[in-house]
Structures are given as structure tokens and as C-alpha cells.
Amino acid sequence: MNSNIDRISNLPSSLLIIIASFLPFKEAARTSVLSKQWLNIWRDAMHIQFNETFFVKSDEPEENRKVQREVFINFARQFIANYSQQVIKTLGLACSKPGDFLSDIQNILMFASSRDVRELGLDFSDPTWREQALENHQAAFELPLPVYEHGQVLRSLKLFSCSFKVSNFSNFCSLKTLSLGLD
């Protein structure tokens, strides 16, 4: 019975990557257990979300969250090291302690720029700010140069708690959406 319902297994991996690229990142990751042919498809999906909240549990003590954050960054590090597509559609990065991982975040943004990312979302806000009721805080991260240099292909840019130099936004000729926020 199973052999004649297996409709999609004879598709080339390049097409499965396109299908997986229409899925949210978490969902793309779950396709790895569908079958052996799907095992590594998601590692080349073109919507990438590195979201700390997938890994870090907000209700746990900070010492646990610190370990979970290390696991998260390590995951992102390995993901970009193994990625083989030339172009990515979306890259989202949410990290509440960018200061602890400056070089990794730089590398992730270099990676996104080198793959001509179309939509970039960066969120460096920290949920604990709200608990402490701080009204003013410094933006946690400064947008690095490679992002400006590859700005001409960006269609959408979302920055939360990320500072930038307005004068560097000179060549963002494809940009249609820009969102900025503090937290």
C-alpha cells in the first residue's frame, strides 16, 4: 500500500528545497524526520530564522538561559557553516545578549549579505528590560558595514534595538519596507 502512495519521493532534492523554502523555519526543520531523502533538505531552506526564543526558556533562571543561549548560537554557527545555497530569501536573528556573541553575530550578518538576503530582520531587545521597567537603554548592537554594502538587494529591513547610521543607507534602492523599534 505504501509504495504507490509515495508521490513526492521521486522529486529531485532541488525541488524539495524549494518546497521547504516556503515553510517557516521551525517547520522546515521538522521535515528532516519525514524520510531519509528529506534529512538534510531543511539545511538549505531559504527562509532562515535564528530565534533565541526557540532555544531559551524565559521562565528559567539566568544561569540556565546562558547555557541555552550558547546552544542557540552554536546551532546558528553550524547552520551557516554547512549552508550551500547561493541566495537566501529571509534571515531573521533574535538574540537578547548580542554583546556576548559579537563575532558570531557579525559572521551571521556577513553570511546573510554574501547570499544577497532579500529580507533581513534583527532583534536585539532583551525581554528582561521590560521586567526592570527601564525606560531608556542603549541600542544593543550597531548594524555592521557588510549590511550597508549589500543594501541594494534588500527589500525589507526590520531593526529592533539595533542602531544604524542614516548616512550609510545610500544604495538601498530595492527597499520597500523598513521597520524600526526599540524593544
Binding site: 505504501n2 516556503f22 521538522r30 524526520v33 519525514l34 524520510s35
Partner: peptide, 27 residues
């Protein structure tokens, strides 16, 4: 088609997605 498929399998379990695509689990 790809967008429609993505919408239909959103938040679905692995078992559901397997039967949606008609995939044999060889693990």
C-alpha cells in the same frame, strides 16, 4: 502550489505531513 502546500501543513505534526505528501518513513 508551494504556498498552498505550506499553508496546509502549517503547524502540523510529522505524521500528518508524511501522509499529506504520501511519504514512506524509511527511518
Amino acid at each position: 502550489l508551494n504556498q498552498a502546500v505550506a499553508d496546509r501543513i502549517e503547524n502540523k505534526s510529522v505524521e500528518y505531513v508524511r501522509s499529506f505528501f504520501g511519504i514512506d518513513n524509511d527511518f
